[in-house]
Every structure is written in C-alpha cells, then in structure tokens.
Simulated scan of single mutants.
Amino acid sequence: MFEIKQISADETYALRLKVLTHEHIEDCYYKGDFDGRTIHVGAFKENEIFGVASFFPEQHKQLKGNRMYRLRGLAIDPSHQNQLRGQALILFGENFLRQYNTELIWAVTKVSNIQYYEHLGFEQTDYMFNDPMKGLRVLMSKSI
C-alpha cells in the first residue's frame, strides 16, 4: 500500500536527480517550481518517497486552449517502476487540476516513452524536435 499527497518542490529534487537525466542537483531546479500555482505530488511507502511528478501552469504555442498545465519531472525510483506508480501520480495530479478548471495537460518526452503516455490517455502531436542533449522529443497532450 502507498500514499500519494501534495509535496513541496524541495521534496522532488532527490528523485529527479536519481532517476532523470540530470547530472547535478542544480539541473533539478525547474523554472516555476515555487510558483504558487505549481503542483508537486509525491508517492510514499512507509514514509519513504519513491515517486514524484510536477504540474506547471504553462501554455504551449502548439496547443489550443487557455487553461493548461505541463507535466514535468515525473520520476519513479527504479525499485517501484512497472507497478503503475507513475500512472497513479498522474491521475492524482489530474484530479487535483480539475479543481482549477484545467482543460489540458501536456508533456514533452522522448520518442521511446510515447506508448507509456498513450496508455495514460495522452495523444501524440505532430510537434517533434531534436534536443542536442536528450535526443528526439515529442509533444504529448491530454484533455481532462
């Protein structure tokens, strides 16, 4: 059994560093982490955090709509991956964002993650780009 709850930005950094493609703790600090509208959620088992996700109030010029949030920094400890923990975090965040009348959630991800996001109800857009540090990236979106 595990618990998901809202957390602070500071509580996301250790897992972002451990799981995502960041080399230094400073790389884990995202613009908007401390914006009062940003939502950070964490998954805990026996008071130990093993998953985080952050939702930022951010528009994307390729998407239509006014009330959208960006999913960024989804990180699940490897010992908890492939157990639907990421899905639970995203669904928790979606339910939270509905209270703000959010219309759309979007994320940029590597091409190899497309199927994962599609499983969560996201749709692939036509917008793709090459990030010199991370490779080919694709914009995914989900109406909520």
Rank of each mutant, 00 (worst) to 15 (best):
E23W: 05
E23R: 15
E23L: 13
H24N: 14
H24Y: 12
I25D: 09
I25G: 08
C28G: 12
C28Q: 11
C28V: 08
Y29S: 05
Y30E: 15
Y30H: 14
K31C: 02
G32D: 04
D33M: 01
D33A: 00
D33F: 01
F34R: 11
F34A: 05
D35N: 15
D35R: 11
G36R: 04
R37T: 00
T38C: 04
T38L: 07
T38N: 03
I39W: 10
H40N: 09
A43Q: 02
F44P: 01
K45S: 01
K45H: 01
E46P: 04
N47V: 02
N47A: 02
N47K: 06
E48G: 01
E48P: 03
I49W: 05
I49L: 03
F50M: 12
G51T: 06
G51E: 08
V52S: 02
V52W: 02
V52F: 07
A53F: 07
S54G: 04
F55Y: 13
F55G: 08
P57R: 04
P57V: 05
E58M: 09
Q59R: 10
Q59T: 04
H60Q: 12
H60F: 09
K61A: 10
Q62V: 13
Q62H: 11
Q62C: 07
L63F: 00
K64E: 12
N66W: 06
N66D: 14
N66A: 09
R67C: 14
R67Y: 10
M68V: 01
M68H: 11
M68L: 09
Y69T: 03
R70F: 05
R70G: 01
R70D: 07
L71Y: 04
G73F: 02
G73S: 09
G73D: 08
G73W: 05
L74H: 06
A75M: 04
A75K: 00
A75E: 13
A75I: 04
I76S: 02
I76C: 07
D77A: 15
D77H: 15
D77T: 03
D77Q: 15
P78Q: 14
P78Y: 12
P78V: 14
S79G: 10
S79L: 14
Q81M: 13
Q81L: 12
N82T: 07
Q83M: 12
Q83S: 10
L84A: 13
R85Q: 12
R85C: 13
Q87D: 00
A88P: 01
A88Q: 15
A88R: 14
L89W: 14
F92A: 01
F92M: 01
G93Q: 05
G93L: 00
N95W: 02
N95S: 04
F96R: 02
L97G: 08
L97N: 10
L97I: 06
L97E: 09
R98M: 08
R98F: 00
R98G: 07
Q99A: 03
Q99C: 00
Q99R: 05
Y100S: 11
N101H: 12
N101Y: 04
T102K: 05
L104H: 09
L104S: 10
L104V: 03
I105S: 00
W106T: 06
W106K: 02
A107L: 12
A107I: 13
A107K: 09
A107S: 15
V108K: 07
V108I: 15
T109C: 15
T109Q: 07
K110I: 02
K110S: 11
V111A: 08
S112K: 06
S112F: 00
S112N: 14
S112I: 06
I114S: 07
I114D: 03
Q115G: 08
Q115M: 06
Q115R: 10
Q115I: 01
